[in-house]
């Protein structure tokens, strides 16, 4: 950049250089800072959700643990690994772009897209599972199961429902959010670590109230769907970005001298990965240690 300061005249423009910049260095610097500023706002965007999570988890830890234990940590863990692999292939895309290796770039972009799509596929399986088990927190958005006239329904108190047993399909004619298991409340009550908010929030007249507990679990599922949903939306945007990148890389446009679009898409992709790195333990694993002998 210091070159033009002596002459004080506008320079001849390199190809690929936008009109407002003096040289490629300035352009790359601008694009890179711009992308980081965008990521900062993304962090704050997800930050609002994490605040809501923090507040409600500190108020109702048992409801969150119960809800979390019903998520499938296998799928969640698998998705974490899938995203990490896709991050690696993304990083390698940038690496090969810097080495002007067009074929490896294309392969790496395709791999990244494949892993991204796998992630979304697994997410779909999980969402369908929640739909089938009446765990979507919106009325009418769950599978509707008619009540059978002669079926016997469990009349056990809700804290004796065995949460390790496979989920039983309860009649759900209006597709409501359903939750029957409050064994963790009983456990916390017996061992004396209910929070003050929980002592009010789960009980009616000194008895555990299954409906009140269900409302708190629903808040967990709400946050689960909003957080993973927004994350999935970012993945879809990332896949669109990758498609564009694939076309440009296919033409062999990226080289040692011009690889900013790859680098910037990489930043975005890694950011989405980082969000998931936090979502996985906070959503899938937070109550796992209560499962022993619960």
């Amino acid at each position: 950049m210091s070159s033009h300061s002596e002459t004080g005249k506008f320079h001849y423009h390199e190809p690929g250089l936008q009109h407002q910049f003096e040289d490629m260095g300035q352009q790359e610097e601008s694009v890179s800072i711009g992308m980081w500023m965008f990521l900062v706002q993304e962090i704050m965007f997800f930050g609002g959700l994490f605040t809501a999570y923090l507040v409600f988890r500190s108020k109702y830890p048992m409801a969150f643990a119960a809800g979390s234990n019903h998520l499938d940590a296998f799928w969640g863990g698998l998705n974490t690994l899938v995203l990490i692999v896709s991050s690696l292939t993304m990083a390698l895309t940038v690496y090969y772009a810097q080495k002007s290796n067009r074929n490896m770039q294309v392969i790496m972009i395709l791999l990244t897209m494949a892993f991204g799509a796998t992630f979304l596929g697994v997410k779909t399986i999980e969402y369908r599972d929640k739909f089938n088990h009446g765990l979507v927190p919106v009325q009418g958005w769950n599978k509707r199961i008619k009540a059978e006239t002669n079926a016997e329904h469990e009349t056990k108190p809700c804290w004796e429902v065995d949460h390790n047993a496979p989920a039983i399909e309860h009649p759900n004619p209006r597709g409501e959010f359903q939750w029957t298991d409050c064994s963790l409340v009983k456990k916390a009550q017996d061992e004396g670590y209910l929070t003050n908010a929980e002592k009010i929030g789960y009980f009616s007249n000194g008895e555990i109230d299954a409906n009140k507990f269900r409302d708190k679990v629903r808040i967990f599922y709400y946050l689960y769907f909003v957080m993973t949903g927004l994350h999935a939306l970012h993945m879809i945007v990332g896949l669109a970005l990758m498609t564009w990148l694939l076309i440009v890389a296919w033409r062999g446009s990226f080289s040692e001298d011009y690889y900013m679009p790859v680098e910037m898409s990489g930043l975005y992709w890694h950011f989405v990965d980082i969000v998931w790195i936090f979502l996985f333990p906070l959503l899938y694993l937070l109550g796992r240690h209560f499962m022993h002998g619960g």
């Binding site: 940590a73 863990g77 690994l81 990490i84 996985f280 333990p281 694993l285 240690h289």
Partner: peptide, 16 residues
């Protein structure tokens, strides 16, 4: 990163 993920999972199953 992979080791970290596996570690996260097993650390969560132990009651600390």
């Amino acid at each position: 990163l992979v080791v970290g993920t596996i570690l996260t999972y097993f650390a969560a199953t132990v009651d600390l």
